[in-house]
Design a protein around this nucleic acid. Structure first.
Lengths: 358, 358
DNA sequence: AATCAATCCCAAAGCGCTTTGGATATACGC
DNA sequence: GCGTATATCCAAAGCGCTTTGGGATTGATT
């Protein structure tokens, strides 16, 4: 059943039916009621493609996810982000189209997205330090909002981000206050913008206490469980081992905990761990919702909320273009869990070492 | 730059230009070359909406994800599945549109998807035991393929699934062969079809050895880390505690391991664990790619591959309709890792208990 | 009774593409 | 030289919707 048929059934013109269904004022209330009823009864739904062609609106926003040509991994964080964004889309009648773009064809892919006209705006994921997408997107002229930031550019574009620097600085200070001096940073890939900010937060905290950073205590990679395990193991095996870890995500934190236990150490007695927690549904850290004490002391910020905010913003940009860029910096809150405690005294450490080597 | 403009620039008709670009034979090779060059030079890209309206093809497939009205969690498995599917879509020029549909508006949402015409086919996620979507989708008439199966229906629809029953039966038998008699099943939600099949695999294995299942050893819930922890803890605290766990996913398996360690027990010496492993990028179990010994003994089946297969199939269905339904049953392979070992003898268990209570 | 402004409705022109059904020109076989 | 293919190209009709620019009709106002 299309518009033409429906209008014929009703003995009205397509114009009137269209107007009635789209809530224009030029149609008598009684007529509108009749039209709406008939539409309902016949299960009429306007064809999205035709509508979109006529209005110039796709009623969809694209999420573009750069993937390295060698088959990158999709971050589980992404699932929760999408879930959040979908809430907004559902409420506003937008569709979500997902494109994985191989980064060797980036420019082309983005331009295509725009000229193809299947989306009205886009959400940019996984910004990297040297990301070249801002000028490209501005050139293309499609509204966009970035989940995260790109340091090299000013604030002349829309973004939603967590205050990564502050979060990691605070977390590091917390550990320093507990007496830790050997704090391992288990970070994300160096190329990622968020990882860079976290590194700086960590470094700032050390510098404030006049502690020289040790390259052996700084790791960066894709945030898998096994990476967390490997990195933590290495740092625990140092001559002057780490007594605390700062992890970029729950997943490597689980790996770090495994490393700690394998080394015959106890968390938090021997080694403390703080992790950033994106508040993923499937990796709940306890606390907050549950009321229980969280497993990990964590800097928490809901990536689901970030998804909702990004979507809300891009819809706003689509509907009323030409706005000044707007930024949304989310603060992560530090919740203390059961993974942190005072740094072991040197004497204790020595005793353990002896025990371990026995 | 649209088709009309391009054709004017070239001094040719829209027909010819369109045909040339779409590879129809009715246009001279020299002309085609000229047209293709000009298109490239002007950055011409056909408008997807117009094209789709004209052809009746949306060049997109929808992924529908039921979410319970109370804000369901999006499974991280989904991220990898999508990544796999995207590979196929990329190769075939299809877009992927994602819809979360609240399950109280299910029927409506699916019908809308079809009549709106924004997708040519759909992938059905998270089938439940009593899923009513098969008849609904057939009635709607849009090609679809289910990731998983719906037991109540025969095989008159397309699906791609893991042989969950066989995998869990084999895993349980493996544990039984190691002498375990108290095997805890840490399963997914009872309503999910895959969980039901896994339960049956587990039960079959027990029955074959004439072991009566113990309801206290069977847990079902959303597969979070903390669920794995809670369920395993409870089963370890039973008067006749579990000596092995069979987990439905890596995530609760991590929780189970935590429970084991918290109970002062050792995996695998005191308690063995087998988990199903969806081979998620961010939760690598080791083995396979790495060459190292996997952490967990696991029944592995790549959900990413499943995604690719589903996408491939739905594209095939869209392109040549009216095919007989086709099924793809993936076998999970059991890889032995470091989480399983012989069941502790009663005497050993007793000694530990005494030690623990001291 | 004529005028005016609302009010309600419609015909038709697009949106940018594909595709049908020719038209024209060139080559071929006899 | 004539019919017959064959190769190229084109005008125009959709696809299903929105939207412009009026045309009737009605009721109130002069």
């Amino acid at each position: 059943m299309n518009l033409k048929q429906l209008s014929q059934v009703l003995g009205l013109s397509q114009t009137t039916v269209s107007r009635a269904l789209n809530g224009y004022p030029e149609v008598a209330e009684a007529t509108r009621q009749k039209i709406v009823d008939a539409a309902e009864r016949h299960g009429y739904r306007p064809n999205a493609r035709a509508k979109s062609l006529a209005t110039g609106r796709a009623m969809a926003v694209g999420h573009v996810l750069p993937v390295s040509a060698k088959g990158e991994i999709v971050n589980p964080v992404f699932a929760d982000f999408i879930a959040g964004a979908s809430e907004s889309y559902l409420a506003h009648g937008y569709d979500l189209v997902l494109s994985l773009v191989p980064d060797d064809a980036e420019e082309d892919a983005y331009r295509e997205l725009a000229t193809k006209g299947s989306v009205d705006g886009i959400i940019v994921h996984n910004p990297r330090i040297d990301d070249r997408r801002i000028p490209l997107l501005r050139d293309i002229g499609l509204p966009f909002v970035v989940h995260g930031r790109i340091s090299r550019h000013g604030d002349d574009y829309d973004w939603v981000d967590v205050n990564n620097l502050r979060a990691f600085r605070r977390a590091a200070e917390f550990l320093l206050d507990l007496g830790h001096r050997r704090i391992g940073l288990i970070n994300g890939q160096t190329a990622m913008d968020f990882a860079d900010r976290r590194l700086h937060g960590y470094l700032e905290a050390l510098e404030a206490r006049e502690i020289a950073p040790d390259p052996a205590l700084i790791a960066s990679d894709l945030m898998t469980e096994s990476y967390g395990h490997t990195a933590a193991s290495a740092m625990l095996a140092l001559p002057d081992p780490a007594t605390a870890f700062l992890c970029s995500s729950m997943i490597p934190a689980l790996g770090a905990r495994r490393a700690i236990e394998e080394a015959g150490l106890d968390m938090p007695r021997d080694v403390s761990v703080i992790t950033h927690d994106d508040d993923l549904g499937y990796l709940s850290n306890g606390g907050a919702a549950g009321g229980s004490v969280p497993i990990f002391t964590a800097t928490r910020s809901s990536v689901r909320l970030a998804g909702r905010l990004c979507a809300e913003r891009v819809i706003d940009l689509v509907q009323t273009p030409g706005q000044a860029p707007q930024q949304h910096l989310l603060e992560a809150d530090l919740t203390v869990g059961r993974s942190t405690g005072p740094a072991p005294r040197a004497a204790d450490r020595h005793r353990e070492d002896t025990a371990r080597n026995a």
